[in-house]
Design a protein around this nucleic acid. Structure first.
Lengths: 211, 211
DNA sequence: ACTTTTGATTACCCATGGGTAATATCCATA
DNA sequence: TATGGATATTACCCATGGGTAATCAAAAGT
């Protein structure tokens, strides 16, 4: 362990990178702890003092890593979005509109069972200033656009029966986002089970009757 | 700035001469105005001063009608729930599980397009003290239970294909609750259109293939 | 008319909590 | 062992905003 740089040329001059790495780890620790508390109690009920305490430091120490509480909130949301985008980019793949939509639903549902996934739904962009808020709203729009596009593609390629992509996207995204509200880690179903169930359930009414 | 100064919340205090309104109307006016602002800006960004100002009164006047800000929040949620329950009790009617489920979806969807309906989703019960919070959580559980029961009834009477009532209820309630997030009064669809669309859409995958 | 009640106003209190200043500590480098 | 950069601590500031006390004005009862 800690063998990050257990290198052959035992040079005692490794610390510069290690320090940066340590700093990044601390940034992440602050973010993780803050997010966990935000999800549990709601942003406005979490104090910077509490975040610090839970990390065994004092409040001003946090300001070495984030400029403000709001800055943490923004980072949390963005990290959640990045993780989702990462998987979408890697796993959406090719195929019919319906096939890709099902894959998106699986990815989205699984993500919603993680703390960072929940941040996409449970954090309120109205707690951010205009600049950051706009950045998030744009990403939300893009996400909505992806749902609509896959549905429209499916209608076009015949894998999905004719339907209003806007309403279909609202219905699907709503069901998925709601996972962030009801999911508990000690619940009866694994994230994969939930994802599989929803991928079928949310597209069951969209398939063409004729095969 | 959150736009539309056009607010249908009329203030009983506007004309200083005819301050002859009933107490109940004033209570309702306070509640309506507070709720409108809560929905627009989020509970924590609304000050008692702002609520009062918008009603052409000063802050302490509000405390003639509500004991606290939290008390207003609680009343808002409860009023929303009462209106929903009212319609459910009156309009759910008889019939197969599927038929009753569709009626519930229509009622719920329409309600979600009103300010009081939105309060059920957009207000956070964690902003309440334990007593009030528990009262709300119980009502939320009952509502969830109603969805599950209608689905289970439908499976039992054969109008709905075998499915997990818990997951089906989560998916449907999620899609419905999400309306509160995306619906805008100046949107392209009337509440009735939305309700009809969702009643079909959210049950399209639940019908029996045969039949 | 006179007193009581209701409801509004002005002026204020004060707990909370985000954020900062000054300072101390640690540690690799020279 | 001295220097300097990074990071932590103690002690503090202060804007915000929910809520109250004292007071006043207009209905309403008698």
């Amino acid at each position: 362990m800690t063998g990050s740089a257990a290198n052959e040329n035992a040079s005692p001059w490794l610390p510069v990178e290690d320090r940066e790495k340590a700093r990044d780890q601390k940034i992440e620790a602050v973010q993780d702890m803050a997010l966990t508390l935000f999800i549990e109690q709601g942003y406005h009920h979490v104090t910077m003092n509490e975040v610090a305490e839970r990390l065994n430091v004092t409040k001003p120490a946090l300001y070495n890593y984030f400029r403000s509480k709001e800055d943490i909130l923004y980072s949390c949301w963005m990290s959640g979005h990045e993780r989702l985008q990462q998987r979408v980019g890697a796993e959406l793949g090719e195929g019919s509109g319906l096939a890709r939509l099902r894959r998106l639903i699986r990815i989205y549902a699984e993500t919603m069972t993680t703390t960072y996934g929940k941040s996409l739904v449970l954090l309120d962009d109205r707690d951010l200033d205009e600049i950051n808020r706009r950045a998030i709203l744009e990403r939300k729009r893009n996400l909505d656009g992806l749902f609509r596009k896959l549905i429209a593609d499916g209608v076009a390629d015949g894998s999905i029966r004719p339907t209003d992509p806007r309403m279909a996207a609202f219905a699907i995204a709503g069901a998925l986002n709601w996972i962030g509200h009801w999911h508990r880690v000690d619940g009866p179903m694994t994230p994969e089970k939930i994802a599989e169930d929803f991928a079928q359930r949310l597209t069951a009414g969209l398939e063409r009757d004729d095969g």
